[in-house]
Amino acid sequence: MAGVLDSVNQRTQLVGANRLELLLFKLSGRQRFGINVFKVREVLQCPPLTAMPKLNPFVRGIAHIRGQTISVIDLSMATGGKMIDDLDKRFIIISEYNRSIQGFLVDSVERIININWDSVMPPPQGSGRKSYLTAVTEVDKELIEILDVEKILHEISPINTDVSEAVTKDLDVTNVRDKIIFIADDSSVARNQVNKALTVLGLKIEMAKNGQEALERLKEIAAETGNVTDQVGVLVSDIEMPEMDGYTLTAEIKSTPELKDLHVILHTSLSGIFNQAMVKKVGADDFIAKFHPDELASAVKKWLGLEEH
């Protein structure tokens, strides 16, 4: 266990084509779950938690870690399972999503696996609207479930998707009225957040659930006219997606003649200098950390040519 805990930070430096590393953990049963190592700051044995009034029922308390006050979310309860007990024997995964730090209380933490994104599949059809899965993969003939953490966090503390009037003031989309804003994100919650934020721009919006689906659809659109930009104004893509991640999607777009002129904004809850380097490496036009509706809408305006670069 110590080896796993000690190596998390170093291994977040993974660089690879369409690859990721998952930290495997368990909640209240035998099922194994995975979280992208890029999202993980550290893993600790659960420290003493301070109960606070009016906290969401899934927030077990507040932990004071390295000078920070961090909310600790019972990941089992948040996904419809039973409360995790014996906290002094459990672990918390400290992670960063959407510009905030939180701790996820889990039963146990196991090992880190290195896999290809193309071996990560969308959740099975019919899993239902209440499913908290964003993807699944198979390791050693065992199904690993990857949770839709953005959905969990949204249910605990909903994100504001309203764009301020300052961003839309005097907006004139006449020259791009027929353009599509294309969104690629595997999280249904994230797709809806982006959709709501960008609807105020008054353009058509089309969405895909992963990079492979987005690439195929963009090629279909390009086949109609010879260049995808005749119909699509800008692509807003997540990075973490099953089958094909956002980095690979961007690299494919920029290396395909009929797609290469499309402006790509990578929009992700991943953060850090590493991602800025990868953005340049794959040729993305912009990088926006989730989720700030004004920043996202302003970036889309910029790459649509609605304001000066």
Rank of each mutant, 00 (worst) to 15 (best):
E145K: 15
L75D: 01
I94W: 05
R41I: 12
D230V: 01
L153Y: 01
A208N: 05
M207W: 05
K26Y: 12
K204S: 06
S271F: 02
N227P: 04
M278Y: 14
G272A: 00
G103E: 01
T256N: 08
E21Y: 11
A51C: 14
S157F: 10
D140A: 14
D6H: 08
H64C: 10
V228E: 03
F58E: 06
A277G: 14
N275K: 13
L27C: 04
L153S: 01
V194S: 03
Q102G: 09
N36W: 00
M52W: 11
I253Q: 03
G246E: 00
L262I: 00
M77C: 10
D285S: 15
D140Y: 12
M121T: 13
T248Q: 14
K130I: 05
G29Y: 05
Q212D: 14
N210C: 09
A222C: 04
Q193H: 08
Q125R: 14
Q31M: 11
G81R: 11
L55S: 08
G226L: 01
L306V: 00
I239D: 00
N210P: 08
V194F: 01
V234H: 00
H263W: 09
I181N: 05
D294R: 07
P48T: 10
L218I: 01
N18Q: 12
T168C: 06
T250Y: 06
